[in-house]
Write a protein that binds this DNA or RNA. Structure first.
Lengths: 168, 168
DNA sequence: AAAGTCGCTTGCATTCTGCAAGTCGGTATT
DNA sequence: AATACCGACTTGCAGAATGCAAGCGACTTT
């Protein structure tokens, strides 16, 4: 997406979207989690135009989510595999999947996450590992972190005040 | 994002991205969670051009994530508030925030989720509510759901086979 | 020698974005 | 009564991003 408006933003959501916030990147990552590695396989799986895929892949490599590695030298061929950072993106994709299943699958989910031990579908939830408590709007709120500057701090304060005032 | 390639896709991730997969929508939602409701406040907070915001808001309203409601009739004024479906998007945003904090905040996180009871920062994780187990790639895999058609089923099978073969 | 495979690049048309400015219905100020 | 102001947009236009088809380069296969 556009460069000017997001660069330098402190918000981690904005920073994340800077790297994966276009229409295709997350779908490419989804396919990477499925084990797809090769250019033409991405093209086929996604129906994406090759020039666009080319751009996205180099962008994802530059962002550190994918690694471009040669799997054959004589006919020089490359494949794209997830880095640790890329693999760490899985929760976001799963959360998105769960949300999509809840709201945009009137006929029922076409794809689900299942527990391989029990073969049961997973019931996904975010929790705080420290307390084990599921995340709720009542108990958990967003606050300025350790290194937030004056402006960020003011924003968060303003927003939390709004939030409190807006409970109807 | 583009219409043709995603419409009719069964994958819940694709379906989700159809509604929020452009550069701005998730940031608008983020601000909505912060309590922002008014057009000009969104413009100011995001630095988004008003015409773009206008498009996004109507799209988000159409998708059922936001509700446009009048807060004043005599000078007709409207505000945009999260629907239940929109509020349910919070885990995605939080996962994205956590990921951003882990990888793109070298100076430390500027914004964190905290437990209001303990005032401690939250350590976010996805778990399976049925078993209480955190989600891992080893234990939990993606499978075709109940209503998956032939093609989806074949894709998932193919992909899982690849995945198994690719464990290096 | 011809055809195929894989991973791209090039050219061109269409669509989407960004910016500045203006508009429309009202209210508040002088 | 005239002017300024406010909030929520729309309009016009330029530039960037995207989509599609076609081609290309370095091989391998038949």
């Amino acid at each position: 997406m556009n460069r000017k408006s997001l660069e330098g933003m402190q918000c981690p959501v904005a920073r994340s979207l800077e790297r994966v916030g276009d229409g295709w990147s997350m779908l490419i990552l989804r396919d990477a989690f499925y084990g797809i590695r090769r250019f033409d396989d991405f093209v086929q799986s996604l129906g994406i135009a090759p020039n666009i895929l080319s751009h996205r892949l180099t962008k994802l490599v530059a962002a550190g989510l994918l690694e471009r590695r040669a799997y054959s030298t004589r006919p020089a061929r490359h494949e794209y595999v997830l880095t640790d950072q890329g693999r760490d993106f899985r929760p976001v994709l799963l959360a998105l999947m769960a949300w999509g299943n809840r709201h945009f699958a009137p006929e029922g989910p076409s794809i689900v996450l299942t527990d391989t031990l029990t073969s049961e579908p997973v019931e996904l939830a975010l929790v705080d590992l420290r307390t084990g408590e599921p995340i709720t709007r009542g108990r958990h709120t967003i606050t300025a972190g350790a290194v937030a500057n004056e402006r960020t701090r003011a924003n968060v304060e303003f927003r939390n005040a709004r939030l409190a005032a807006d409970r109807h």
